[in-house]
Structures are given as structure tokens and as C-alpha cells.
Amino acid sequence: MSRVAGVIRMQLKDWIWIALPWIVLLSAFFVNLILFATIDTEEENYTGALASIFIILFTNGIMTINQQFSFALGFSVRRKDYFWGTTAVVLILSALYAAALTVLTLVERASGGWGARLHFFRVHSLSDGSAAEWGWIMFVAFLNMFFAGFVFSCWKRRFGLKALFALLVVLALVLIVVSVLGTYYEGWDNLYRLLKPLSVGKLFTWLIIPPAINAFISYLLLRRTTA
């Protein structure tokens, strides 16, 4: 069996990948549903609880290095195979999650908010386009969340905890400088004008770049990481 396939199977044996995001999301959903079905209200109800599943992808990106990377390396797996196997799992699961959430959003729309004016899966202005566009947005968002967690975790694994703090401090400083300079040179207005004509779907197509860069950096870090 190919080693990448072995890594995929190994990752999927860990139920945290498949079950945990849905346990959290669906329990939040049912609590909200019961709540809003019992309260008689004329208002439209938004919860924001959909964010939980994206946050879990971020934490999974952090945890897989601690949980699976050392284990796999100890079982004679190449770093490269671990990386591609994990990336494949994330791509597959992100696509499945996005598809499932799109279907739930459609059902929500058709049922008038589950008969309780509950907009659990709808996100204002993001999910109002076509179903395909909404699915794509969520897919890209999942990848962004996962690889953001992944690259920090790889950095910490490669260089240690102090280096992680150092990186966070440097990143915070860079963000401050960029935002100050952006304001000073009226960069934010220009950026807004640049992005305004784009549809949300097109905007998210550009957002495929950060996870790709993070994945590439993660791979370079893993190449020199010890068990």
C-alpha cells in the first residue's frame, strides 16, 4: 500500500477529525433550534455558531502535529508522505464538510429557518449567492483555518516554544506597522476599491493563496523536524 494512503487511513482512524466538528456544531444547532422554536418571536435569528466548526479545523491543524506526526515518524513514515497524506485528508474533509453545510443551508432556506426563523447556517452576505459559491467559500475558509493552525504547529515543533512566542510577537508588530502604514498612505481605501467589484466567491478564490503558502512553509519546516 502506498505510504500516503497509509497516512490517510491513519488520520481517518482518529475520530476527532470526523466526529468532533459535527458533535460541536450539531449540538449547538439543536440547542438553538429548541430555544428559538419555544420562544415566539417575529425577529430573524442569527447565532454565529457556525464559526465553531471553522475553529475546530484550526485546532485540528495545531493538534495533528502533536498527535500524529511523531507517531507516524516513529512508524517509519517519511515526512513527505505524512504531509501529503494529511493534506489529502484536509482537502477531502473540507470538501465534504462544505458540501454538507451547503445542503443544510439550502434546507434552512427552504424551511423558513427550520420553522423557527433560525438562520444557523446562513451567514449574512456570504451565503446569499449560489449554493456552489457558498460551498466554495466554506471550502476555502476551512483550508485557511487548518493550514494557519498547521504552520504555527510546525514552527513550534521545529524551533520550540520560545521561537513560537518570538514569531507571534514579530507577526503582531508586522500587523501593527502594516495597518499604520496602510492608514497613512490611504492603502485601505485603495484596497477596498480594488476588491469591491469582485464577487464574494471570486474574493475567496484569491484566499486560496494563504493556505497554499502556509502549507508550503509547513512542508519546509517538517523536512527538518525530528521525531
Partner: peptide, 26 residues
């Protein structure tokens, strides 16, 4: 196959999971 004292296992793995993974990698 390197069996080391410090081998880490994923938190959710059972003994059977470890054997299944071994079958894939060895």
C-alpha cells in the same frame, strides 16, 4: 521498524488502531 521507549500515540488510538496502522506501514 524502530520501537522506542518514547514512542507517542494519538490520544484516541486503541491497541487495535495501532495494529491496523502497523499493517499499513510494515
Amino acid at each position: 521498524c524502530f520501537i522506542k521507549e518514547s514512542q507517542k500515540y494519538p490520544d484516541t488510538f486503541s491497541v487495535k488502531n495501532v495494529l491496523d496502522v502497523s499493517a499499513d506501514f510494515f
